[in-house]
Design a protein around this nucleic acid. Sequence first.
DNA 1: TATGAATGAGGCTTCATTCAT
DNA 2: TATGAATGAAGCCTCATTCAT
Lengths: 221, 221, 221, 221
Amino acid sequence: MTGPKDTTTPGRRRDAQRNRELLIEAAHDVFTEQGLHAPIDVIARRAGIGNATLYRHFPTRAALVDAVFRDLLTGTMAAGEEARAAEDAWAGLTGYLVTVFSGLAADRGTNDLMTTHLEGVESLQAVHAHNRHTVELLLSRGREQGTVRAEVTPEDVLFALAALGRTVPALTAAAGPDAWRRPLALLLDGLRAAPAAAPLPSPALTTTQLTDALQRLGPQH
Amino acid sequence: MTGPKDTTTPGRRRDAQRNRELLIEAAHDVFTEQGLHAPIDVIARRAGIGNATLYRHFPTRAALVDAVFRDLLTGTMAAGEEARAAEDAWAGLTGYLVTVFSGLAADRGTNDLMTTHLEGVESLQAVHAHNRHTVELLLSRGREQGTVRAEVTPEDVLFALAALGRTVPALTAAAGPDAWRRPLALLLDGLRAAPAAAPLPSPALTTTQLTDALQRLGPQH
Amino acid sequence: MTGPKDTTTPGRRRDAQRNRELLIEAAHDVFTEQGLHAPIDVIARRAGIGNATLYRHFPTRAALVDAVFRDLLTGTMAAGEEARAAEDAWAGLTGYLVTVFSGLAADRGTNDLMTTHLEGVESLQAVHAHNRHTVELLLSRGREQGTVRAEVTPEDVLFALAALGRTVPALTAAAGPDAWRRPLALLLDGLRAAPAAAPLPSPALTTTQLTDALQRLGPQH
Amino acid sequence: MTGPKDTTTPGRRRDAQRNRELLIEAAHDVFTEQGLHAPIDVIARRAGIGNATLYRHFPTRAALVDAVFRDLLTGTMAAGEEARAAEDAWAGLTGYLVTVFSGLAADRGTNDLMTTHLEGVESLQAVHAHNRHTVELLLSRGREQGTVRAEVTPEDVLFALAALGRTVPALTAAAGPDAWRRPLALLLDGLRAAPAAAPLPSPALTTTQLTDALQRLGPQH
DNA sequence: TATGAATGAGGCTTCATTCAT
DNA sequence: TATGAATGAAGCCTCATTCAT
């Protein structure tokens, strides 16, 4: 006997737990593919479970989103912690944003989540706050170290991040998984105090790729 | 023969033309307010015309969009022409983008249009091409004049433009009609060869404004 | 040719008109049977028409209710006019209320309509206003003629009317189509200045009938 | 024997009893707030108990209602006893009805219960019977004492009571906790043999209050 | 037996597209 | 040809009741 829990679990508990997991899994997949606005019924269907059951487990979309991303988001926060500890604030900031964007690129759900403020998603509050603190700290230290432009505020960075971040899925779809590195580098260069030394990463978009990427953006809302 | 070419449909031709105009007008208004995904019926109703008639005139949404913006977009192209003539390429580029963004801020339709490639919208091709040429020209001359970073491509600029452009409506809603000037300036600073001399325009976002703006972005699609 | 309309009516107009009538008819029936809260879909089904079509004709429940009852309600208003002209105000009031209650007894829809204020039902406003004016006028003249208690206000009457009126369908179901006459008479006797001379109309409820009636009332809301 | 009768289920019996009490308590609260049609699950959740357990204890809604109100209703019956003892039958009747209405005003559940006959609620039979006897007795004595109209039957009173009683929650919501006193007084005046001497209690409704009250009544069922 | 969970069915509303005159 | 109308399909949500442990 390794743990007492297994034997204690009464009645249907295990089954429900299984359903809950199926739902979260399905929701994760669907959110990843379609974004956070994906129809609830699609998720339920994908899980092979009645939609009313989904509602029982997660009365609101926000609750479901919260459950799906709670763990994933802690990953982002960990990256933030690490970045804060960096000697060179600029390097820390850069590295942090790269990590964040890697996440945004892979997953429409994470993307929506990080580049929007969804009312009612609890865990999100924490991530956004943490995110802001990380950026704020690194900016302020960067300013002291002379690598960050004096006037740049955390809001500047966070907003630019969101703006660029939202386009990442379309971009990667059109031009490969690393395509976001280049516009991100450009953005960062705008924040620097000193002129940018490093060459831009990732090859430039071709015209076709640009067209493709824009097409994938689609009309808003 | 005093009338128009086709005598078989005496008043018809003119009637249809009138309808077409009414539809385009209505669509323009609706697109401006609601974006390009606005319900077809709303447009037809606003024009005071049956939706099936709309379909007859414009079998697809793209066709309607095309018709609506064909004329408007020439305005943007004119701004491009003017910019191309600028002595100082950097000033020309800056001015051009400011003009473009002013348009993006005012009109959800133009915004969708310029920051996306809608399959099947013919006239759009022309604008995007023109746009690209303008940027390309100014970039290349800027490079010669030493004001633009060597590596920056037109695609870099156009893509960044689209990314930032799409957020403009939410941004102006949250922080006022000039709020886009600041992130645009930041973006431009990233493109410069020389370090940015000018201070950032427009006050920085407050945290609340940022939150508000992000909330207004909403999930994609 | 007796009228030009028939031949002029273009296209589908006649068909749609037919549908509209079918819908109103069906709605009338369903409202009469089930009251104004009856499911929209049931009405559409009863009319043999898709529910979306119903929505096209009547975008809100209130619009449908309005269409169904607009004509019926003018009947009530006519009765009001007549009552106002009565020499003996008390007789006029009595007669009026009897007419009104006859309507309430026959039809759950009318009943809901008259004993409730449904937001958005235009024609209803007029009836309620007319109703109030009738009652007000007759009360005030009745007071002058010494047949109505001094303190009684139109609101007193209208409210009592509503309270009693709502029970009328259950009452008639349990005790016959004239059963409402008796409680109405009792109510009126409470409004009189002089002691009631006339015997109560309609036989008294039996205990069983009372039980039955109450059962039919059902829980509120 | 120190324990309870059934020794086969040592803690069970007591547990079940406890659950039963919790359920009744919760149901009482919910019924009071929302009326007798409140969702079953809400009650179970409020009790912190599974809904299936609720079903086990009370297979039908009626059974639950019965259990909840069995005790409460004895209070009403006590008031009846007291009223029966009154010297002046009319005063007794009046006082009784005031007491009853106070209850109707405070509690949606009691209201539904007293103004309706719910199929299958056993205990209700008793209350209604008791109620009827009280009214019957007082009426008959009032007739002897010359204060009650000869023709008025218990059913007349009980029905009028129900009709007015059901409107009490809406009325108090619209016009204050004592607003029911005035229409009740009017009703009673209709039952008197002698002309009403006392002025009406509680101020008259304003037009706005009337509208508000009617709106709150809502469609039946 | 007690229980949490599951679900089918019902209700509302919107919209793109097709139909029938 | 021009048109108003029709509709199927999709999305949302709630609740009474049954199921399976």
